[in-house]
Amino acid sequence: MKKQLYYEDVEVGSEVIPLAKIATTEMLVKWAGATGDFNPLHYEDAFAASQGVGSPIVHGALKRAWLGHLMTDWTGEQGILKRLSCQYRGMDYPRKMKDMVTPEEGETWWCKGTVTKKYVEDGQHIVECDIWVENGKGEKTTPGTATVILPSREAKS
């Protein structure tokens, strides 16, 4: 069981615990199946080229889902995600699979965030964060924001 994060544990500038992700062609196939998004932009070479992105790209919504994972992991089971917003600014390209289980060498993506604001409103302990997905070159391809409600040690006692 993960440790629970409390409102008192974070300050403006605190880091959201980073989360590493590796986009592979396998993950894109699984994502397509799990969401029902069968846009050929994410698996058809010629179609992706015709759309001006070169080759099949990682779904923006998959990167958004990684950011959801980042936040639910960080806030723990007693935290509540109220708002999650992001923009798909940069293209990301999945690693190909070498065999059934092994991706080729390549990029690792990092989901990261920092606390920008904390305040109490209507008895709720609210924390706002800037969040983003960073590619292997350190570019923020998917910047966004998140708002969470955290439990408070003081409110508890």
């Binding site: 759309q51 109220k82 708002r83 917003s85 992001c86 923009q87 798909y88």
Partner: peptide, 12 residues
């Protein structure tokens, strides 16, 4: 004619 997903803002 080209369409891209620009992003999303969820409120839960």
């Amino acid at each position: 004619p080209r369409i891209l997903d620009g992003g999303v803002d969820f409120e839960f």
